[in-house]
Write a protein that binds this DNA or RNA. Structure first.
Lengths: 229, 229
DNA sequence: TAAGTTACCTTACGAGGTAAGGTACACAGT
DNA sequence: ACTGTGTACCTTACCTCGTAAGGTAACTTA
């Protein structure tokens, strides 16, 4: 009966884990110091014992997501050329994408950080290792990194991305007033009319389906393969 | 002598222009309602006569930048195939990039909006027009749009991007403690050692030089050219 | 001249991050 | 037992920010 009314003490890890849960559940806007503290059953200022401030919290959250990618991708010391370099990178990037689909707020957060998480650097180191192991020059590997952009982390810069979850805008706009739209935007209208397909799948932004992601990925991988050697 | 102490009245356009100037000068974080009002010589609440609120202000700022791209790119009704489709798109994207280099905060802001500026849609309509005019199917044109990502707007998703201006991180990290870095990140270290070059040019984030941008662009354009027909 | 309209201001509230300092308890050494 | 010393959390308060509510002065129109 005299059960422990003690809560187990906080820690940086517990705080960060709770922050990820909060962001997943209610979006990155809901991740405030007061709200996070409330979710953890403490007051806001108590968080400052475990973290220097809000920026550090966000950095830590990013770090947590990157660690999740690391786990999903497997340790990056698989430099030994046991398979085609394209296949290996493809698998990594697609594994990263699965993580990102669980955290739709992560791409935006990652882009907003001004310091690069150490885990990301290590991750990219593995990519460079795979490339040079496959015969790429460091020069071309460098170019490749830039060309990949955020693909290794499982997302692409989507202009047509509602901040919340997936799709529907295409359909909405089409239903709004199709005639006016067809007049002002003849080519897009024609394209949409031809391309009305699975817009309702829950993905990372507008039309950023698995198919689109892999198309872009293969376009780059094939192009790089031609430049290799 | 009895010169007009009247200031000329505000307008949505003047407010938005001042907002762009502020963001250019001191970053997007400095763009608050009070600060913007002060720069315009009025009180914060006066802005609400011309704009519904902060979100509308940011939407308007994005709209302003997109309009600037439109001007730089030329009107998108140049659908007539007077040149190679690759050359035409390349020119557009590079013109857009020049605009973005003047507004380093714009990529992040664009990515954070949940509504798509109408100007962007019109711009992409022109791109689709160019593609289908060159023999692309609507299907492939759709894929191409996604593959391009934010390239048409003149930037790429840069993971290694300090929020402020360009470069230097590579050098900083290298100078920090090279030995420890070489141990933990062998491939990146080797690459950096091989690739130390113009990191000091003022560009959009880490290493996102003109060369890198064009490399990615051509990689995609060449890949699409092969898929055309 | 009275009523509206336009453009800007004053006041105030609540939410958010956080500086400064306080409290309660565990445990170590004397 | 007495007194640190450190850990983990709390209270209060300040400042910035967006913005709701309502006020005011000048100009227009009838």
């Amino acid at each position: 009966m005299a059960a422990k009314a003690f809560r187990e003490p906080l820690s940086r890890e517990r705080v960060l884990a709770a922050a990820v849960v909060l962001a997943d559940a209610e979006g990155i806007k809901a991740l405030t110091m007061r709200r996070l503290a409330a979710d953890l059953g403490v007051e806001a200022m108590s968080l400052y014992y475990h973290l220097p401030g809000k920026e550090a919290l966000l950095d830590g959250v990013v770090e947590t997501v990157v660690a999740e990618i690391h786990d999903a991708v497997g340790r990056p010391d698989m430099t030994k050329p046991d398979g085609d370099w394209r296949t290996r990178l493809r698998q990594r990037f697609l594994a990263a994408r699965e993580v990102m689909l669980r955290h739709p707020w992560a791409p935006g957060l990652l882009g907003s950080r001004r310091t690069i998480p150490a885990g990301v650097v290590a991750y990219y180191d593995g990519i460079v290792g795979t490339l040079v192991g496959a015969g790429f020059s460091y020069h071309l590997a460098h170019r490749a990194l830039h060309a990949f952009g955020s693909l290794p982390l499982g997302f692409v810069q989507e202009i047509f991305s509602p901040a919340s979850a997936g799709g529907g805008m295409e359909v909405d706009a089409a239903e709004a007033d199709l005639t006016a739209m067809a007049e002002a935007l003849p080519h897009l209208t024609a394209m949409v009319a031809t391309e009305i397909h699975d817009v309702t799948d829950p993905t990372l932004g507008w039309c950023d389906g698995q198919v689109e992601f892999e198309f872009t990925l293969d376009l780059l991988l094939d192009g790089l393969e031609r430049l290799r050697g």
